[in-house]
Design a protein around this nucleic acid. Structure first.
Lengths: 216, 216
DNA sequence: TGCTGTGAAACCCTTCACAGCC
DNA sequence: GGCTGTGAAGGGTTTCACAGCA
């Protein structure tokens, strides 16, 4: 394949395959079959093969996929090879937890700045970082070539932060505020909302509860 | 409609509509049109109407949907009307941030327990809670009728926690560990992985970066 | 006239099933 | 024989377009 366009559903699974491949390499494996990858990631093996086929054909029939080569390939496709500076906006409980999250660094992302609007937080040390003023957001984005902004501010402030970030040239936003962000075409937003997740789970748990009662 | 089965895609949007309705009520609105809801939530208005039609027909042609009635209806469908005790497993940075997250309580969820395997953390106070031993997980789940478990432990420990929770009767898991959890049919797992999200964003940012270069 | 409710079309994603190659 | 790569079928989701009702 490799005609350029990778389906969104496939892109969202590439990080899982990457993780599975890293684990496989640690286990000393040189090749993995789609069947094994599928089991680890929790999907169907045909899906794995289809997904990987979009990256080009790296597998060998009768053998499987070369772990090292495929790891590199997926990393490149995801753009994880270079330096990926990230900024966190909002230094509340969540912002701090994110800052100390070691998965950041382990996956090639670098926490390059933390900013907050609250003057009493500016200058405070959080881990290895000193909180800077949100007033300087645009400057920081430009100077440090921030590509991804993590929004960890209250819902009311999220849109303003997003707009500022986009104006400063950011094209990718990870939004933890429980609100929809309006951004121009070409900017990607992914919203992660804890209470939304809990409510979705509540729906299914609710169903199951009913079934439990019905069953016994 | 209201024939019982609500599509998964619709369920995942109900919390957003609920939020929009709560906001509308605060603004003093008594009815909202699918057009307005769509704009706030960031989707197409036909999708809003289709989604809401699965809950039964509450709208009035020429007018819109009654805010109060629809709020109640969605809350009931999501199972948010009763007491919803939640347990957090893992009291690291993330677990602590989650514990202090006020969206929990505001959406009808009640943090009923926090447990950890680390003996040095057991007995420690976190907000209004005292950390309990993960050894007592099954007992706590049963005693406090925990329906949803939030897993905030390292990837290596996540499966074991999930298995224990499921054995204790839990049917809904919110998993923050970057790993696939194997659970029996009837148990719902939603995995939220920060580095997965960043990697997906990286893909699109990477694309945009390329476009920027191409454009000028 | 305005907005809902919904068949029908279009689209995307998943799964099957097997040809093709090692 | 084993496993990939992929056409084709199947299922789910989104969007269109408009009939129908307040």
């Amino acid at each position: 394949m490799r005609d350029g366009r990778i389906p969104a559903a496939t892109v969202s699974r590439l990080p899982m395959y990457l993780q599975a491949l890293v684990d496989a390499a640690e286990d000393g494996l040189e090749t993995v079959s789609s069947e094994v990858l599928a089991r680890v990631v929790g999907v169907n093996s045909a899906k794995v093969r289809k997904d990987l086929s979009y990256l080009g054909s790296h597998g060998t029939r009768g053998v499987g996929y070369p772990v090292a080569e495929l790891t590199t390939e997926i990393s490149e496709v995801l753009g994880l090879t270079g330096d990926r500076p990230v900024m966190i906006v909002g230094v509340g409980n969540l912002g701090r937890a994110l800052a100390s999250y070691d998965g950041f660094a382990r996956r090639g992302f670098r926490l390059a700045a933390m900013v907050d609007t609250d003057p009493s937080k500016v200058g405070v040390r959080v881990g290895e970082h000193v909180v800077e003023s949100a007033d300087d957001l645009a400057m920081v984005v430009a100077d440090r070539r921030i590509g991804i902004v993590v929004i960890a501010v209250p819902a009311e402030a999220a849109q303003q932060v997003a707009t500022q970030a986009v104006d400063a040239g950011v094209t990718a936003i990870l939004n933890f505020a429980p609100t929809h962000l309006e951004v121009p075409a070409g900017v990607t937003v992914r919203t992660v909302d804890l209470s939304t997740e809990l409510q979705i789970l509540s729906f299914y748990e609710h169903l199951e509860g009913g079934r439990h009662l019905a069953a016994g």
